[in-house]
């Protein structure tokens, strides 16, 4: 199956987007958690503050579904 990961800022550089400026297409196996998928593409989950999809938080320990688009939020310092 295929999912689409999006990220901006410094995290974008670690994601290596290939679809557009922010988005990377990732082929993966059904049932794998987002955390496992990130490890597969050599993006350490520690660099992701949280993931976000369809208007809500998406746990790194959940398995995405085919075609799902997930935004990765980079950690930042407070204001």
């Amino acid at each position: 199956m295929v999912i689409y990961l999006k990220a901006g800022s410094e995290l974008r550089l670690k994601l290596n987007p290939d679809v557009d400026f922010y988005t990377r297409r990732v082929e993966t196996e059904e049932g794998k958690t987002l955390r496992e998928i990130l490890k597969d593409i050599r993006l350490a989950p520690a660099f992701v503050a949280f993931a976000y999809s369809e208007g809500r938080i998406f746990s790194l320990d959940r398995a995405p579904r085919d075609g799902q688009s997930i935004t990765l939020q980079p950690p930042v310092s407070g204001g």
């Binding site: 800022s9 208007g55 939020q73 980079p74």
Partner: peptide, 11 residues
């Protein structure tokens, strides 16, 4: 892509 999560959740 990071705008909406920012708006919703802040820091």
């Amino acid at each position: 892509p990071n705008m909406e999560p920012w708006q919703k959740y802040g820091t």
